[in-house]
Computed example of a mutant assay.
Amino acid sequence: MIFKVYYQESKTEVPVREKTKSLFIEAESVREVLSKIRGRGYNIEYVQEVKGAYLEYEKQNEDFKVLEI
């Protein structure tokens, strides 16, 4: 499964919507996603499974890249 992770780059800053970034990770569960990115210092806002038409839409974006961890 592919998951989209919405995050802030620093845990010490107040979350601001305009600074929210996202990345895609392949994993079996949300728990596995969180364990893969645990040591990066991100402030995780939301983890969402991406599938079907939504995944196809995201693949059309030139910035779409599944992070290999």
Rank of each mutant, 00 (worst) to 15 (best):
N61I: 06
Q60N: 12
E45W: 08
S22R: 10
E62S: 12
E68V: 08
E28Q: 10
V47W: 06
K51H: 00
Y54E: 15
F3V: 03
V33G: 03
E58L: 01
R31P: 00
K11C: 01
P15D: 11
E56R: 14
T12D: 01
E56I: 07
E32F: 04
N61M: 06
Q8F: 05
V14S: 13
G39C: 07
V16I: 12
S22F: 08
F24G: 10
R40S: 13
Q48Y: 11
K51W: 00
V50F: 01
K59N: 10
K4I: 13
R38C: 11
K51M: 00
I25L: 15
G52V: 05
K19F: 10
T20M: 09
L23A: 08
V50G: 02
G39T: 12
E58Q: 04
K65Y: 10
T12I: 01
S10E: 13
K59Q: 15
V14M: 10
E28W: 03
E32N: 12
R40L: 15
A27S: 08
I69A: 07
F24H: 14
V5S: 03
Q48P: 00
L23D: 03
Q48T: 11
Y42G: 06
Y7G: 11
E18Q: 04
I2G: 04
M1Q: 09
R40Q: 15
V66M: 10
E26I: 04
P15C: 13
S29P: 04
V50W: 04
V47F: 05
E62A: 11
I25W: 06
N43A: 12
K36R: 15
K65G: 05
T20D: 05
E68R: 13
V66E: 08
E32G: 02
Y57S: 04
E62P: 08
E56H: 09
F3W: 05
F3A: 01
Q60V: 03
E18Y: 02
E58K: 03
E56L: 15
K19R: 15
V66A: 09
K19E: 12
V66Q: 07
Y42H: 04
K21D: 03
F64V: 04
V47C: 06
D63Y: 07
I37N: 13
E32K: 15
T20W: 03
R31S: 14
E26Y: 06
V16K: 11
E45I: 14
G41H: 07
V66C: 09
L23E: 12
L23Q: 09
P15L: 14
L34A: 13
P15G: 15
S35T: 02
L23M: 15
V33P: 02
V16E: 09
L23S: 07
K65Q: 14
V33N: 04
E26H: 09
E26Q: 14
T12A: 03
Y46L: 14
E62G: 01
E9H: 02
A27L: 07
E18H: 03
S10T: 10
V66H: 09
E18D: 11
E9Q: 03
P15Y: 10
Y57G: 01
Q48D: 12
Y54W: 14
R40T: 12
L23C: 14
P15T: 13
V47L: 05
F3L: 02
E58F: 00
V47E: 03
A53T: 09
T20F: 08
Y6G: 02
L34F: 13
E58P: 00
K51I: 00
I69V: 13
E45R: 14
